[in-house]
Simulated assay, not measured.
Amino acid sequence: MKIILASNSPRRKELLQQVGIDFEVQAANVEEVTDKTKPDEVVVDLSLLKAKAIADKNPGRVVLAADTVVAYDGKILGKPKDEKDAFLMLSRLSGNTHQVYTGVAIVDETGNINTFAECTEVVMYENSPELIKKYIATGEPMDKAGAYGIQGKGAVLVKEIKGDYNNVVGLPLAKVYRSL
């Protein structure tokens, strides 16, 4: 059965294709608003919002939705507003450990809902202002939570991870596969 991915994320599409999951994309164009404040609760709440929006339009279908955030010192770092914001984020993360949370919501054919959050710790190298500026100049950080992409040029900023690499990319693939 072909599932519905409630996301336009190219990274999530690539991950599902990597393991041979048959899916189609229906982006959930919903206002991403939650009253939650803890990163793990925020991502679960937002992924559930997306999954329900698509499931309501597609009864009897399996829907998968996800939401990923970067958190440092308990605060969520979204996508940078501009290059200055990206520089501030990456400078803050430099030499420190932060968390990447992905919330997943799966609505099955009968309407049952399964949600979970995955957390991966990411340790950044002590990155010089020059290296950070050079990375920002690539344009890559501008559409990414926390202002970096571990699967791209941002890989040179990362010293190590503790947990699921694919979670940092945007989907805890093994756990999603087993849940489906």
Rank of each mutant, 00 (worst) to 15 (best):
V176Y: 05
L90P: 02
E140T: 10
G78H: 08
I4T: 08
G163R: 10
Y177E: 10
K153A: 10
L88D: 13
V42N: 04
K50A: 04
P59F: 06
R12P: 03
N96F: 03
D73R: 06
D164P: 04
A86H: 08
N29W: 01
M89P: 02
G95S: 06
V63E: 01
S94G: 10
P59S: 09
I76T: 04
D56N: 15
P80Y: 04
L131V: 11
V62W: 00
D35E: 14
L48R: 14
K75N: 14
A145P: 11
L157V: 07
A71N: 02
V104K: 00
A105C: 14
G170K: 00
F116C: 07
V122F: 09
K52E: 13
Q17D: 09
F116H: 12
K133A: 14
V62P: 00
T97R: 13
Y177K: 13
I76Y: 05
D73P: 01
L93N: 02
E130V: 12
Y125T: 00
V43P: 03
D56C: 01
G20P: 08
V176E: 10
G149I: 08
L77D: 01
Y148V: 07
I76P: 02
M1L: 12
K75L: 09
I3G: 06
F23H: 11
K153C: 11
N58P: 02
A147Q: 04
A55R: 01
Y101D: 03
S7D: 12
G78E: 13
T37D: 13
C119F: 00
T68C: 11
N166Y: 14
E126N: 14
K52H: 13
S47D: 09
V107Y: 01
V100G: 00
M89L: 11
E41N: 12
I21D: 10
Y72T: 01
V176D: 06
K81P: 00
K57F: 02
D40V: 07
K52W: 01
Q151E: 14
V156F: 14
D56K: 15
E32V: 07
L48K: 13
D45F: 09
A71M: 07
A55N: 10
L93K: 03
K79R: 12
P59Q: 06
